Simulated assay, not measured.
Amino acid sequence: APALVLREGDRERLQALTRSSTAPAGWAQRARIVLLAADGESNTAIAGRVGVSRPTVIGWRERYQAKGIAGLEDEPRSGRPRRIDRAKVIASTLAPPPDRYGVRHWSSRLLARYLRISDHSVATIWREAGIQPWRAESFRFSTDPELEAKVVDVVGLSLDPPQNAVVLCCDEKSQIQALDRTAPVLPTQPHLIERRSNDYVRHGTTTLFAALNIATGKVTSR
Protein backbone atom coordinates (compact mmCIF):
# COMPACT_ATOMS: atom_id res chain seq x y z
CA ALA A 1 0.00 0.00 0.00
CA PRO A 2 1.24 3.53 -0.72
CA ALA A 3 2.38 5.69 2.16
CA LEU A 4 -0.48 7.30 4.04
CA VAL A 5 -0.62 11.09 3.58
CA LEU A 6 -1.02 12.91 6.89
CA ARG A 7 -2.99 16.13 7.28
CA GLU A 8 -1.05 19.26 8.18
CA GLY A 9 0.05 19.27 11.82
CA ASP A 10 -1.17 15.72 12.47
CA ARG A 11 2.26 14.11 12.77
CA GLU A 12 3.08 16.08 15.91
CA ARG A 13 -0.34 15.33 17.41
CA LEU A 14 -0.05 11.63 16.61
CA GLN A 15 3.44 11.46 18.10
CA ALA A 16 2.12 13.12 21.25
CA LEU A 17 -0.63 10.50 21.47
CA THR A 18 1.89 7.65 21.35
CA ARG A 19 3.61 9.13 24.42
CA SER A 20 0.50 10.19 26.33
CA SER A 21 -0.46 8.49 29.60
CA THR A 22 -3.88 10.17 29.72
CA ALA A 23 -5.21 9.54 26.20
CA PRO A 24 -8.17 7.12 25.86
CA ALA A 25 -7.29 3.43 25.73
CA GLY A 26 -6.18 2.29 22.29
CA TRP A 27 -5.39 5.75 20.94
CA ALA A 28 -1.62 5.33 21.30
CA GLN A 29 -1.76 2.08 19.33
CA ARG A 30 -3.93 3.60 16.60
CA ALA A 31 -1.69 6.66 16.37
CA ARG A 32 1.33 4.40 15.95
CA ILE A 33 -0.41 2.48 13.16
CA VAL A 34 -1.11 5.72 11.29
CA LEU A 35 2.44 7.00 11.78
CA LEU A 36 3.98 3.77 10.49
CA ALA A 37 1.61 3.84 7.52
CA ALA A 38 2.72 7.42 6.82
CA ASP A 39 6.34 6.24 6.90
CA GLY A 40 5.58 3.80 4.08
CA GLU A 41 5.49 0.57 6.11
CA SER A 42 3.38 -2.22 4.60
CA ASN A 43 0.17 -3.28 6.31
CA THR A 44 1.67 -6.68 7.12
CA ALA A 45 4.80 -5.14 8.64
CA ILE A 46 2.74 -2.70 10.73
CA ALA A 47 0.55 -5.53 12.01
CA GLY A 48 3.64 -7.44 13.14
CA ARG A 49 5.25 -4.44 14.83
CA VAL A 50 2.14 -3.22 16.64
CA GLY A 51 0.74 -6.66 17.48
CA VAL A 52 -2.61 -6.47 15.69
CA SER A 53 -4.17 -8.15 12.67
CA ARG A 54 -3.67 -6.91 9.11
CA PRO A 55 -7.41 -6.08 8.71
CA THR A 56 -7.15 -3.93 11.85
CA VAL A 57 -4.31 -1.94 10.29
CA ILE A 58 -6.28 -1.47 7.08
CA GLY A 59 -9.34 -0.38 9.05
CA TRP A 60 -7.50 2.36 10.96
CA ARG A 61 -5.77 3.57 7.81
CA GLU A 62 -9.16 3.97 6.16
CA ARG A 63 -10.65 5.66 9.22
CA TYR A 64 -7.81 8.20 9.28
CA GLN A 65 -8.09 8.85 5.54
CA ALA A 66 -11.80 9.55 5.93
CA LYS A 67 -11.91 11.56 9.17
CA GLY A 68 -8.36 12.42 10.21
CA ILE A 69 -7.42 12.08 13.87
CA ALA A 70 -11.09 12.23 14.83
CA GLY A 71 -11.48 8.91 13.04
CA LEU A 72 -9.33 7.24 15.70
CA GLU A 73 -12.05 7.72 18.31
CA ASP A 74 -14.23 4.81 19.40
CA GLU A 75 -17.53 4.73 17.56
CA PRO A 76 -20.75 4.45 19.59
CA ARG A 77 -21.56 0.82 20.31
CA SER A 78 -24.87 -0.66 19.33
CA GLY A 79 -27.30 -2.00 21.88
CA ARG A 80 -28.47 -0.75 25.24
CA PRO A 81 -25.64 0.62 27.41
CA ARG A 82 -24.88 -1.39 30.52
CA ARG A 83 -26.32 0.12 33.69
CA ILE A 84 -24.41 0.04 36.95
CA ASP A 85 -26.36 -0.18 40.20
CA ARG A 86 -24.83 2.73 42.13
CA ALA A 87 -26.66 1.85 45.34
CA LYS A 88 -25.34 -1.71 45.18
CA VAL A 89 -21.76 -0.47 44.76
CA ILE A 90 -22.10 1.81 47.80
CA ALA A 91 -23.79 -0.86 49.92
CA SER A 92 -21.10 -3.40 49.02
CA THR A 93 -18.37 -0.89 49.86
CA LEU A 94 -19.78 -0.24 53.33
CA ALA A 95 -20.03 -3.97 54.08
CA PRO A 96 -16.82 -5.86 54.99
CA PRO A 97 -15.26 -7.99 52.24
CA PRO A 98 -15.83 -11.77 52.45
CA ASP A 99 -13.35 -13.59 54.68
CA ARG A 100 -11.84 -15.39 51.70
CA TYR A 101 -10.21 -12.14 50.55
CA GLY A 102 -8.30 -11.73 53.81
CA VAL A 103 -8.66 -7.92 53.91
CA ARG A 104 -10.63 -5.46 56.07
CA HIS A 105 -11.41 -2.87 53.40
CA TRP A 106 -12.25 -2.96 49.71
CA SER A 107 -9.94 -1.60 47.05
CA SER A 108 -11.54 -0.34 43.85
CA ARG A 109 -10.00 -3.21 41.86
CA LEU A 110 -11.07 -5.88 44.34
CA LEU A 111 -14.64 -4.60 44.55
CA ALA A 112 -14.79 -4.25 40.76
CA ARG A 113 -13.76 -7.88 40.37
CA TYR A 114 -16.29 -8.92 43.02
CA LEU A 115 -19.16 -7.03 41.32
CA ARG A 116 -17.90 -7.73 37.77
CA ILE A 117 -17.70 -4.09 36.75
CA SER A 118 -14.77 -1.82 35.91
CA ASP A 119 -12.58 -0.41 38.68
CA HIS A 120 -13.01 3.00 36.99
CA SER A 121 -16.76 2.79 37.66
CA VAL A 122 -16.13 1.90 41.31
CA ALA A 123 -13.64 4.76 41.74
CA THR A 124 -16.06 7.23 40.12
CA ILE A 125 -18.93 6.22 42.42
CA TRP A 126 -16.65 6.42 45.47
CA ARG A 127 -15.53 9.90 44.47
CA GLU A 128 -19.10 11.12 43.90
CA ALA A 129 -20.31 9.62 47.20
CA GLY A 130 -17.30 10.84 49.18
CA ILE A 131 -16.31 7.30 50.22
CA GLN A 132 -12.65 6.60 51.06
CA PRO A 133 -12.34 3.05 52.44
CA TRP A 134 -8.54 3.20 52.57
CA ARG A 135 -8.48 6.13 55.04
CA ALA A 136 -8.91 6.13 58.81
CA GLU A 137 -8.39 8.68 61.56
CA SER A 138 -8.40 8.56 65.36
CA PHE A 139 -10.43 10.65 67.77
CA ARG A 140 -10.56 11.32 71.51
CA PHE A 141 -12.76 13.32 73.83
CA SER A 142 -11.12 14.56 77.03
CA THR A 143 -13.14 14.65 80.26
CA ASP A 144 -10.37 16.42 82.18
CA PRO A 145 -11.75 19.77 83.47
CA GLU A 146 -8.18 21.07 83.77
CA LEU A 147 -7.19 20.18 80.21
CA GLU A 148 -6.99 23.77 78.95
CA ALA A 149 -4.75 24.90 81.83
CA LYS A 150 -2.44 21.91 81.32
CA VAL A 151 -2.14 22.62 77.60
CA VAL A 152 -1.26 26.25 78.33
CA ASP A 153 1.45 25.15 80.80
CA VAL A 154 3.03 22.65 78.40
CA VAL A 155 2.93 24.90 75.34
CA GLY A 156 4.12 27.90 77.37
CA LEU A 157 7.12 25.94 78.66
CA SER A 158 8.13 25.03 75.10
CA LEU A 159 7.71 28.58 73.80
CA ASP A 160 9.30 30.38 76.75
CA PRO A 161 11.48 28.03 78.86
CA PRO A 162 13.23 29.25 82.06
CA GLN A 163 16.74 30.62 81.65
CA ASN A 164 19.48 27.95 81.42
CA ALA A 165 16.85 25.20 81.40
CA VAL A 166 16.85 22.18 79.09
CA VAL A 167 13.32 21.39 77.93
CA LEU A 168 12.71 17.85 76.73
CA CYS A 169 9.54 16.65 75.05
CA CYS A 170 9.17 12.94 75.85
CA ASP A 171 6.84 10.39 74.33
CA GLU A 172 6.55 6.68 73.69
CA LYS A 173 6.34 4.87 70.39
CA SER A 174 4.62 1.52 70.69
CA GLN A 175 4.77 -0.07 67.28
CA ILE A 176 4.87 -3.74 68.27
CA GLN A 177 1.83 -4.35 70.42
CA ALA A 178 -1.56 -6.04 70.50
CA LEU A 179 -4.31 -3.47 70.94
CA ASP A 180 -8.04 -3.51 71.59
CA ARG A 181 -9.92 -0.26 71.05
CA THR A 182 -12.12 0.87 73.94
CA ALA A 183 -15.00 1.58 71.54
CA PRO A 184 -16.18 -0.11 68.34
CA VAL A 185 -14.67 1.15 65.09
CA LEU A 186 -17.05 3.50 63.28
CA PRO A 187 -17.12 2.19 59.68
CA THR A 188 -16.72 4.13 56.45
CA GLN A 189 -19.80 6.08 55.38
CA PRO A 190 -20.53 8.49 52.51
CA HIS A 191 -18.51 11.65 53.16
CA LEU A 192 -17.04 10.10 56.35
CA ILE A 193 -13.85 8.06 56.62
CA GLU A 194 -13.41 5.23 59.13
CA ARG A 195 -12.96 6.49 62.71
CA ARG A 196 -11.40 4.78 65.71
CA SER A 197 -11.24 5.63 69.39
CA ASN A 198 -7.85 6.96 70.42
CA ASP A 199 -8.06 4.95 73.66
CA TYR A 200 -7.05 1.32 73.73
CA VAL A 201 -6.31 -1.64 75.98
CA ARG A 202 -2.81 -3.09 75.73
CA HIS A 203 -2.05 -6.80 75.58
CA GLY A 204 1.73 -6.72 75.81
CA THR A 205 4.01 -4.07 74.31
CA THR A 206 7.52 -3.35 73.13
CA THR A 207 7.95 0.36 73.73
CA LEU A 208 10.39 2.93 72.41
CA PHE A 209 10.91 6.04 74.55
CA ALA A 210 12.25 9.19 72.93
CA ALA A 211 13.08 12.68 74.18
CA LEU A 212 13.25 15.71 71.88
CA ASN A 213 15.47 18.59 72.96
CA ILE A 214 13.32 21.60 72.10
CA ALA A 215 16.31 23.93 71.69
CA THR A 216 18.59 21.77 69.53
CA GLY A 217 16.17 19.35 67.90
CA LYS A 218 18.27 16.38 69.06
CA VAL A 219 16.33 13.19 69.78
CA THR A 220 17.50 10.75 72.45
CA SER A 221 15.87 7.33 72.36
CA ARG A 222 15.93 4.18 74.42
Rank of each mutant, 00 (worst) to 15 (best):
T22S: 08
A123C: 00
R196H: 05
I193K: 06
G217M: 05
Q132R: 11
S158C: 14
G156S: 08
L157P: 06
S118A: 08
P96E: 07
R54D: 01
V185S: 04
L186F: 08
V167R: 10
P161S: 11
P145T: 13
R104Y: 03
S158P: 00
P190S: 04
R49Y: 01
L4Q: 08
L179Q: 09
V166D: 09
A3K: 14
P96N: 06
I117Y: 02
R7W: 06
V167H: 09
A3E: 11
G26Y: 13
G51Y: 03
P133A: 01
G204Y: 04
V52L: 11
R116M: 05
R49W: 01
R63G: 05
G9R: 11
V201S: 03
R80I: 06
D144W: 09
R77T: 15
F209L: 11
E41D: 12
L72D: 05
T182R: 13
L36M: 15
W126N: 01
D85N: 14
P162F: 04
T216W: 04
S20P: 05
R7K: 14
S197N: 13
G68M: 12
I46C: 03
I131Q: 06
G79V: 12
R7G: 15
L14S: 01
W134S: 10
W106L: 00
G59V: 08
V5F: 07
Y64M: 02
P162Q: 09
I117M: 04
D153Q: 13
T205V: 09
T207C: 01
F141H: 11
S78H: 09
I46T: 09
A211V: 02
N43D: 15
S158D: 02
I84C: 02
P2C: 09
P187D: 00
F209H: 11
R30N: 07
I176V: 12
A28R: 12
L159H: 11
L192F: 04
T216D: 07
R113M: 04
R181A: 08
L36K: 07
G26W: 05
V201D: 01
A210G: 15
D10L: 03
A165W: 03
G59E: 10
V166T: 13
